[in-house]
Amino acid sequence: MTIVIPMRAGPDERLKVAARLIVEGKLVAFPTETVYGLGADALNERAVRRIFEAKGRPADNPLIIHIAESEWLFELAREVPEVALRLAERFWPGPLTLVLPKGEKVPSVTTGGLDTVAVRMPAHPIALELIRLSGRPIAAPSANISGKPSPTEADHVVDDFYGRIECIIDGGPTPIGVESTVLDLTGEVPVLLRPGGLPLEDIERVIGRVDVHPAVKGIEVNLAKAPGMKYKHYSPNAQVILVEGPREAVRRKMEEIVEEFRSRGLKVGVMATEKYDADAFFHLGESMEEVARNVFRALRELDKAGVDVILAEGIEERGLGLAVMNRLRKAAGYKVIRADKLK
């Protein structure tokens, strides 16, 4: 039996029910400013194992721990460098995850067996109040079956987990729509492990140079220091093909591909910033913020439309565009078509 708690107007007394479930070692899905998370007490090894079981998540894929107070960072990390404090002061609460040396309190299962821990303070009022009421740091990957598109609405979580977890908090659509930015602070130079809701440019304005891990652009890794680095992610049932290049060239190439697939009797869906003639179409929006907010919803809705193939329009990799393109490349299994020239 899964309890669904509607909480569109913000935290209220019903949140105490969900907090009690966290304390009891149960699983609670809740909204953050990025996507919905599937939460459990991060220090309860048995509860954390249930997250991996429910999602079908590989045990070596680390989880992010969500906290409500910056002081909790010192209990979870063995060392907290000055740069971490600067970033926390500037960007927390917010969509920034910091990777630091793991403290003794954190079970190995939570960190995927790594000697590092990933921590963030979410900006969503429901998430923060749930953490405060439970008095526990909450480990929470995205609340979706492993490998599928991340959930940005409670209905997405219901589709994946109703009857399999104890509680789903419906806080409405998430405002950002892509997961947090993950920054590794364990070396001499900070390293971007995953682009997300906080643009890299904003971070560099505060701390200077940040290296970008090869996995961000699709280079395969054997050791995942952050969620989403090693395994196929965000994929619907339909085949996803990403088309990149100059805007007009992309349009012509996508129209050509739609015609080709439909001539073979396949049902084609398109997700883009401008209208296409296809069997199903999802308008991603005009601004980069709208596109980020809609990208996972588009993948899920086109899948529900029963298309065989989803064509995704590539966008410029600046600001949130870097995170969007990272997710689209993973959703496509790095099947990318370049449209560099007009015929």
Rank of each mutant, 00 (worst) to 15 (best):
V240T: 07
K253L: 06
K232T: 11
G245Y: 08
I315G: 00
K253N: 05
E248F: 13
E256G: 13
S287F: 07
A272V: 00
Y276G: 03
M271N: 02
G228D: 02
D277Y: 12
E260D: 15
M325I: 10
F261G: 04
E248R: 10
E286T: 15
K253M: 15
A292W: 13
E259Q: 09
A312K: 01
V291T: 01
Y231F: 15
G319A: 03
I315M: 06
A272S: 08
P236I: 00
G314Q: 02
L242C: 06
K232F: 15
G228E: 00
Y231G: 03
A332L: 07
N237H: 14
P236Y: 01
E289W: 12
A278I: 00
L299P: 04
D277I: 10
A305C: 09
V268C: 08
V250W: 13
L299I: 07
N326R: 07
M229R: 10
S263N: 15
M254L: 07
E255M: 05
F296M: 05
V295W: 01
E289C: 05
A323S: 07
V240Y: 00
G285C: 04
D303V: 03
I241K: 00
G319S: 02
K253W: 04
K304F: 04
M271A: 15
E289Y: 14
N237F: 13
A280H: 08
P246N: 13
I257V: 04
I241S: 01
L266D: 11
Q239W: 11
F282K: 03
R318M: 06
M271S: 09
E286Q: 13
A305Q: 11
E244W: 06
K330P: 13
V258K: 03
L302Q: 07
R293W: 14
R264N: 12
A332P: 09
F281Q: 02
A272D: 01
E317M: 11
R327A: 04
V309M: 02
D277R: 15
A238K: 01
G285P: 10
K275F: 13
A272K: 00
E289G: 04
G319Q: 04
E248Q: 14
E260H: 08
L311Q: 02
M325N: 09
A305Y: 01
K304E: 15
E259N: 11
P246M: 11
V240R: 00
L320T: 01
N326C: 10
R247G: 09
L322F: 11
I257A: 03
E317R: 14
Q239M: 12
H283I: 02
V268N: 06
R300W: 06
Y234D: 09
N326F: 14
F281K: 05
A272W: 00
D308A: 10
R264V: 08
M325T: 10
D279H: 08
E289I: 06
V324L: 06
A323K: 04
V307N: 03
Y276N: 01
V258S: 09
K275H: 14
V295F: 07
K232I: 13
F281T: 04
E274C: 05
E316I: 06
L328E: 01
R247A: 13
E256F: 00
V268T: 08
V309Q: 00
K230H: 14
V270A: 02
L322Y: 11
K253V: 03
E290N: 12
F296Y: 15
R247K: 14
